[in-house]
Write a protein that binds this DNA or RNA. Structure first.
Lengths: 143, 143
DNA sequence: GGGCTTTCTTGAATCAATCAAGTGTGGCGA
DNA sequence: TCGCCACACTTGATTGATTCAAGAAAGCCC
């Protein structure tokens, strides 16, 4: 995981002020990929002390807009955040327990990015979510 | 659009009781692809008469589970429903106005369905969402 | 038509997320 | 180093989609 100093540089590079809640937030997201907002609040409070939920929501939005974290939101789930950005990976979600895992791109670079008919849209991103059952749930269901 | 009789057969085929709210719901989803729950409630009430929102939620869930309609939920949007199922098409969503359009699969059949490393997951579906700006918003932004 | 089960109605509750107003603070220039 | 001020945080209330619960109504099989 990047050091506090690196987090500082990331914030400054995005023209964002360096505050302790934001540093704690960055650390929490790096440490707990795919955590939902509530879990992140819990982690930040443990690592750093009392913070309002509003500060977390604000900071998550600021960092998402700055491209420092990525927001993902599979159907039926609250928003989740991760620190891997701009590396074009996708996700596989368990229909049963909701666990999320990373999936690297098959082609390594911008796969499936070409829509057959773009309807005049200027497309800038392709988001892929694989749905299925994780190993644990798969075993539990068949037994 | 399929006839009422065909909707009836679809419901019976899925072992679901045939009720007027469900028939109206199927018609509404076929007529208004990508509509959110609230719009669907409005359409059903216009076409059929007073129905509780709960009945719509129940019916949408029942029909989704039965595979008669498909639920899609892009980040930052309420749940939307469409009648095209099992034809492996995807969606392009406008970041600005939220409009959704269908995109047929480039490869015609199960593209992008192979994850490079499935982490032990039993994958049964790949959902692809293209993000960008629709023609209208693209023009408005650049002007 | 009778009876059982599913579905619908009514009304309340939950949960994530946002809004609003006021206080505090990081980072800049002097 | 000092002071300013825009940006960030706190507190508290609100919204809006969705779900829960209990009872009434209606579909389907016999």
């Amino acid at each position: 995981m990047p050091s506090v100093t690196e987090f500082e540089h990331m914030l400054r590079g995005a023209s964002l002020r360096v505050t302790r809640p934001r540093l704690a937030l960055l650390a929490a997201v790096h440490e707990h990929p795919h955590a939902d907002t509530d879990s992140i609040i819990g982690v930040v409070r443990t690592d750093y002390g009392e913070v309002s939920h509003q500060a977390i929501y604000d900071a998550l939005r600021a960092l998402t807009n700055a491209g420092l974290v990525r927001r993902i939101q599979p159907s039926g789930s609250a928003a989740r955040y991760e620190s891997r950005v701009a590396d074009n990976h996708h996700h596989v979600v368990c229909r049963s327990c909701g666990v999320i895992a990373d999936v690297d791109c098959v082609d390594g670079l911008a796969p499936c990015l070409t829509a057959s008919d773009d309807h005049g849209f200027a497309i800038d991103e392709a988001e892929v979510i694989f749905w299925g059952l994780c190993a644990d749930c798969s075993t539990a269901h068949s037994s």
